[in-house]
Amino acid sequence: MSEPTADAATEAFVAHRNLLFTVAYEMLGLAADAEDVLQETWLRWVGVDRATVREERAYLVRIVTRLSLDRLRAVGRRKESYVGPWLPEPLLTAPDVAEDVELADSVSMAMLLVLETLTPTERAVFVLREVFDVEYDEIAEAVGKSQAAVRQIAHRARAHVAARRPRGTASPAETRAALLAFQRAVETGELQDLLDILAPDVVALSDGGGVKHALLRPVVGADNVARLLAAGWWRRDAERSVEPVQINGGPGLLVRIDGEVDGVLAMRLENGYVTGAYHVRNPEKLSRVDRETAVSR
């Protein structure tokens, strides 16, 4: 009798796996931690009496949320001693992710950085309600709050994010132009191409994790960021290649040195201009850029 139950549990988990990973990743900003949460979720799921489960998706999301909240608080303590700016772990995503505007926005580097400014509970409530459209009663069970409290938290988090999230969109043509300019600047040091597409208040951040050379503070302003990128401050004497890729549902460049992945440069676009440039070189955060990661809502 146990084998059919195990098979059914596996089938349900696999059916929702991409969704569960996306929930955990949007809460944590780290793919490795999200995978750990999924493993713990699976171990708990196989021990559940499925006769007591009304709706499998909701039950699994509840487990993932609780585990992610526990891990998010631990990750927060790790970030306190992090060297330089902390950036989310970049994901190489499939082209169709960009076609789902809401999904692409929710997993973008820019949005994940905005979510970093929320408390763990606010982040969980926002992600579940605004991204995955989970009902308030289910969110209340997941975060251990009353429905009234969850509604207040959701309102507060929504206002907080709205004040900080990207306000404009970029057309496919504008995205291609921005990506081309970035690639040309990295490969040739061409400055004017960058100045043409950088917003006046553009911000560049880089994450080396104390292991690789990276900026210890944000660089602000089109002139400063253009000169920084055109100079290729991360270069060294080596064989270097630059490949346009989709990172977290948006445009990015994958940089290889001597054939090995050296870093990822992701962009935030608003109204045709680059407003954010995120350069990740920390080797511990580059394991998901050599193969596509499936995300879903």
Rank of each mutant, 00 (worst) to 15 (best):
T293E: 13
G259P: 03
A277L: 13
V255A: 09
E260A: 04
E270M: 08
P283M: 07
H279M: 07
T275V: 11
R281F: 14
L269M: 14
T293D: 12
G272T: 02
D262G: 03
K285R: 12
H279W: 13
V289R: 09
L286E: 01
R281A: 11
I257H: 08
L269V: 15
M267L: 15
L286M: 09
A266L: 05
R288Y: 15
R291F: 12
V261T: 12
D262S: 05
E260I: 00
G263M: 07
G259K: 00
T275D: 10
T275W: 01
A266W: 00
E292P: 09
D290Y: 04
V255E: 02
E284G: 12
N271M: 08
I257G: 04
E270H: 06
A277T: 06
Y273R: 11
L269R: 06
G272R: 06
R288W: 08
R268L: 15
E270I: 07
K285I: 06
V280K: 04
R291T: 15
V261S: 00
D290P: 00
K285D: 08
R288M: 14
L265S: 09
R256M: 05
A277V: 14
L265W: 08
L269H: 11
Y273A: 08
V264H: 03
D262V: 00
R291G: 12
R291Y: 15
R268H: 14
H279T: 07
E270V: 10
N282Y: 12
V289G: 04
G259I: 01
N282S: 13
V280P: 12
V261K: 02
R268P: 08
N271H: 13
R281H: 11
G276F: 02
R281C: 05
V274K: 02
E270L: 07
G276P: 04
E260T: 01
V264T: 06
V274W: 03
P283Y: 08
L286K: 05
R256G: 00
T275Q: 02
H279Y: 14
G259W: 00
G263K: 05
E270T: 03
R256F: 03
A277F: 04
V255G: 01
I257A: 10
N282L: 07
S287V: 06
V274Q: 04
D262A: 05
R256C: 07
Y273P: 03
M267Y: 02
D258M: 09
D258T: 07
T293F: 11
G276C: 06
S287G: 10
V274C: 04
V261Q: 00
V261D: 02
T275K: 01
Y278G: 07
S287D: 13
K285P: 05
E270C: 02
Y278W: 15
R288T: 11
E292G: 12
D290R: 09
L286A: 09
P283Q: 10
E270S: 11
D290T: 14
G259Y: 01
L265H: 14
G276S: 10
L269T: 07
V274N: 03
E270K: 07
N282G: 09
Y278C: 06
S287K: 09
G272I: 03
N271Y: 12
E284I: 09
M267Q: 06
H279P: 15
Y278L: 10
R288D: 04
Y278M: 05
Y278K: 01
K285L: 08
E292D: 13
S287Q: 13
R281L: 14
G276L: 05
Y278V: 10
N282C: 13
N282T: 10
N271L: 11
G263A: 03
